[in-house]
Amino acid sequence: MSFAKATASVAILAAAATAASAQGREQVQVAGSSTVLPYANIVAEYFGESTEFPTPVIQSGGSSAGLKLFCEGVGENTIDIANASRAIRPAEVETCAANGVSDIIEVRIGYDGIVFASQTDGPAFNEFEPAQWYQAMAAELPQDGEMVSNPNTNWTDVDSELPDAEILAFIPGTKHGTREVFEEKVLLQGCEDTGAMQSMMDMGMDEDAAEEACMAVRNDGAAVDIDGDYTETLARIESNPQGVGVFGLSFYENNTDVLKVATMGGIEPSTETISTGEYPVSRPLYFYIKGAHIGVIPGLKEYASFFVSDQIAGQGGPLADYGLVPDPELAATQQKISDEETMSADAS
């Protein structure tokens, strides 16, 4: 019966291993935005090698997915920090509260620029205006008092100054936080600049409907939603020399040998122009800490303070090297973490 015995003992061993309950979690668990991910990785690496705490574990998956995991509840099998490339939404705060996650500390780590880049030897896309992007990307444009579907197929149709190339733009898909920024800071801006918004309202649309029409992107193939990450956008640009892609500043800075960037509204994107607010298309990046986990998970508060310390997130630190635009109000953020100031306290 040796085989049966062997099988039985293996089964018992396995059951014992499974039954051995997990002891207290030692490392910080983080999940969320793929835009924040590289920064979080860099900080985690420095944190792990410079402190006695273990390196935090960072998952990606997107801002919404991260916040969803974050709001699942408190306890060791839930994450401690959610990275987000947008601010948490009121609905998410409610879900969180319903699941017992009430003490949320909001930490703004800096700003990320969104740039418009194309192949180095492609058409000369060097200068863009929000208005041009609106006219190239809108699903419908107002014309003689009615909405007609976008007739522009070539960049020269939009503006004779632009290079003669078919309109083909690779823009972030709707699940990305970047898409919101693109819609609000570029399309909506362009819509207002061209006066299209005004003419829509003259046509009898209310403001909300007009804004929505401004941000509706055409779906006839000229605008391609990229649901993956920037590496996918880059691959598309490489196979379509005429294409223009939307990238994060840090991604562009890591690939300047194959990409060339265009100015927006006459301003070249750089950490300087973004921190001064001159470059229009940028957004703040955040992470959210579960207050209830501070003091339970070792190193959680230390990781958060380490993240926003001057040495790391400040000017000349590794995050700025990688393309994060340092937050001018970093000192306030540091104070906020050391006081464990939660969002509910903010509101009251």
């Binding site: 390196t55 960072i58 990606s60």
Partner: peptide, 12 residues
């Protein structure tokens, strides 16, 4: 493994 958090940055 995507759903159970194994797609992560782990250095320990």
């Amino acid at each position: 493994l995507l759903l159970i958090g194994m797609v992560a940055f782990v250095t320990e």
